[in-house]
Design a binder for these strands. Structure first.
Lengths: 161, 161
DNA sequence: AGGGTTAGCTTCAAGCTTGAACCACTGGGA
DNA sequence: TCCCAGTGGTTCAAGCTTGAAGCTAACCCT
């Protein structure tokens, strides 16, 4: 391997700070949701994504992609959420190979109940205290990383990049 | 609960992008280190922290704090790393209540061998492609979040905040 | 129509993390 | 000196994630 291109001081600072964020922010978000609604951040993302789909319905593989989880993980999570009564599985009537997840009324209520506290946590930990220029750069940086992680630059439409 | 303060469009974009980063960047870093050195990102952080301590030695609880992990998790990881011969545990000679982790020569070699590829991955996924202003804002934002997560603002010296 | 291939989803074993319980050592006070 | 509270570290059961293997349904090709 050629001489490694080490990071300079500014880059190291930024990287250390970012890795601290990666270690701790998910735990902090999990803690709030678990305490208040007995949901992990991943659970919440699943239900939240589902609540935004037309008919509150989505195919499992679409859902897995939307929350960046493996199908195996999603299958387990959906099983637990189904046992809890917040969603149900049913085969796609048009193609029995697909399975749809459908948010139940109880699931909708849960999302409605959980959202304010979660948003408040996101504000508290991240958004509040940043000015609009910092928020803009944050989006740029995160989109840049997203593009790199999936090597073929596929855009993330919800984030506008 | 009072009317929730929802996020505006820019804030939502930034938040979606950031949560994508949190889900996927750790997996990408793990993948590179596992493939090339059979280490998780967490393992690497432990060894790397240890390699920077005077005498390549640290108390387990200090190490746990440095990598933002629970003592229980660190205990398991250190046990595995010890079985692998890259570090050893020994009681603190000055106070047998403490346990020190000491990086072995094999461990030092492993860090030296793993570092270039890891830095290259960090460059590839994050640093390269950002200009110095973006890097600066990234550090500011990550430090802001760090400060919020541990409510008493305790500073993270390595990141200069 | 029928056999083979592929895609979607589930299941299973293996490994990891968590939190509680537990053990060991120290330091302080009666 | 002896006990006791507190701290550092380990262990254990429970739960979660992963990746491989398995199952089923649909598509394709002849």
């Amino acid at each position: 391997m050629a001489q490694p291109r080490w990071l300079n001081d500014d880059e190291v600072s930024a990287w250390i700070a970012l890795s601290g964020l990666m270690f701790r922010l998910p735990a902090a978000l999990d803690a709030q949701l678990l305490r208040d609604n007995n949901l992990t951040f991943f659970d919440y993302m699943v239900l939240s994504m589902l609540s935004m789909k037309p008919g509150r319905t989505a195919r499992l593989s679409d859902l897995a992609a939307a929350v960046y989880g493996s199908l195996s993980r999603l299958s387990n999570v959906v099983k637990r959420l189904e046992q809890r009564g917040v969603l149900r599985r049913e085969p796609d009537p048009e193609n029995a190979r697909y399975t749809q997840a459908v948010l139940t009324d109880a699931g909708w209520d849960l999302v409605v109940r959980a959202a304010p506290g979660h948003v408040e946590a996101v504000r508290h930990y991240v958004i509040d205290g940043l000015d609009s220029q910092q928020i803009d750069v944050l989006r740029q940086v995160a989109c840049h990383v997203a593009r790199k992680v999936e090597e073929q630059p596929p855009t993330c439409p919800e984030a506008g990049c």
